[in-house]
Design a protein around this nucleic acid. Structure first.
Lengths: 120, 120
DNA sequence: CTGATATCTCAATAACTCTTGGAATGTTGA
DNA sequence: TCAACATTCCAAGAGTTATTGAGATATCAG
């Protein structure tokens, strides 16, 4: 990841509606959600406003889209999110992992949410 | 971490000079750098501009400062960075760790540049 | 105290971003 | 084909943010 891409991604994430969209899509999984469904999940969001923010997010590489019938489905681009984190933390500990282990733990913990969540 | 804090942090990171400062401080380690040294590491940065951006970063909780003689030392707030990552990725896989393991791997890899580093 | 160094504060200007409402595009079923 | 639906594109206005330069504050050495 290059600096320009990271700047665009952070700028995209610094807006309330867009941050909510990304987090919503992160929990929605690979299937994603239609633009309309995303709009309904947001408070008072006109369709043109949704389109503005979704295209902003796609431009930044944070979400991906595909047409499905009359709807367009959006999903989170986890690869970009991963690269963004790696870009930000590069050389964070320089041989002293104990300095940044908390960050790794924080991210790892999100992958082991609630035991008993028999989602499978 | 709350949404407002995350928004402030992302906004702070979406500016070229500030992103460079944070990454520079991440590699500088816990001791940090003086405001002047940071300014010298940036291209054409006036003292008032550095002050503006550093105070912005401190407000967002991304850096911490302490006075040391005539200088003020700034260091990266890794805890905030960790929380930010965790906030963004919360519920990223919902019981399917394989979905977000790449993100964990990306962050982990930055912590193991030299395997077998001795403890401090 | 005085002078030198380091950093911060303030005000004005320029540049950018978000929202809104309306029109245009693309898709589906009859 | 037409009508209904889903989404995007466009332009204008309000609000926010970054840079600049001058001046203010804090620390230290003599």
């Amino acid at each position: 990841m290059h600096e320009k891409q990271a700047l665009d991604a952070f700028a995209a994430l610094s807006q309330e509606t867009r941050l909510r969209i990304v987090r919503r899509l992160v929990t929605a999984g690979p299937e994603g959600m239609s633009a309309g469904a995303i709009g309904e999940a947001m408070d008072s969001a006109s369709s043109s406003r949704m389109s503005f923010h979704l295209s902003h997010l796609e431009q930044a590489g944070l979400v991906e889209s595909r047409r499905e019938g009359r709807s367009i489905m959006y999903s989170a681009a986890l690869v970009t999110l991963s690269n963004l984190v790696a870009f930000l933390m590069r050389d964070c500990c320089q041989g002293h992992p104990e300095v940044c282990n908390p960050a790794v733990a924080a991210l790892s913990s999100c992958c082991e949410p609630t035991k008993g969540a028999s989602h499978v």
